[in-house]
């Protein structure tokens, strides 16, 4: 396995642990992040195949930080699958991009819905907005690129797909994913602990209603 550790400013590292989106890389990235935080070095942000590791260069020398990161890449063990939950997201399949997206995939709307709903997607990581989970991967028959022109306004609760992934917009925001449904579920609530409904590693399942 190829890995690389890059300086990211004077108080962070970016650790790359592989190429391409797959479950094993994501789990490994998360394990490195968990290990780093457990050692008390600082906060970590795992994504598909990389981990951002933050540290205080005045308590942990940057070269030592790099060695520690390298050691974690070798030794960190992904958490067992059983430690993650499956979260159901009741979804009304109505969205401004539903028909066009079905059409470009040469599918009927109902066929697209059947290929999106009632299957488990892995939560790769959270990014973009508080509580926004990048989930995948989609059936290749409904994979579609982002919109050429992102919308200035996407409503909170919009269920969307793009680039072989799916997610739910937690807040009203701009956005470039294709809107195919909506949910009433709150994806992020700062008065709850944890605030985000789903965690990286969980599975989500969209349930048609």
């Amino acid at each position: 396995m190829t890995s690389a550790i890059h300086a990211f400013g004077e108080s962070a590292l970016l650790v790359e642990i592989g190429e391409g989106i797959d479950d094993a890389h994501v789990a490994r990235a998360r394990a490195v992040a968990d290990g780093w935080e457990a050692l008390g070095h600082g906060l970590a942000v795992p994504t598909y195949t990389s981990v951002l590791l933050r540290y205080d260069p005045f308590t942990l020398d940057p070269r030592l930080a790099e060695r520690e990161a390298g050691r974690l890449v070798e030794t960190a063990t992904p958490a067992p699958a059983a430690s993650f939950r499956t979260i159901e997201i009741p979804t009304t399949y109505e969205g401004p991009d539903l028909e066009e997206t079905a059409e470009r995939s040469h599918l009927a709307v109902d066929e697209l819905i059947a290929l999106h709903a009632d299957r488990d997607y892995r939560v790769f990581f959270l990014g973009f907005l508080p509580g926004f989970a990048y989930c995948g991967t989609l059936d290749p028959r409904i994979a579609a690129p982002r919109l050429a022109r992102p919308r200035e306004h996407v409503p909170a609760g919009a269920v969307a797909i793009a680039d072989g992934q799916t997610g739910v917009y937690p807040f009203d925001s701009p956005g470039g994913w294709r809107l195919i449904g909506r949910t009433e579920l709150a994806m992020f609530d700062p008065s709850h602990a944890p605030a985000a409904l789903v965690r990286a590693g969980d599975r989500v399942r969209f349930v048609r209603r």
Partner: peptide, 10 residues
């Protein structure tokens, strides 16, 4: 590139 964690100053 695949999305990665970022920091201020990047």
């Amino acid at each position: 590139i695949l999305t990665c964690g970022v920091i201020a100053g990047a």
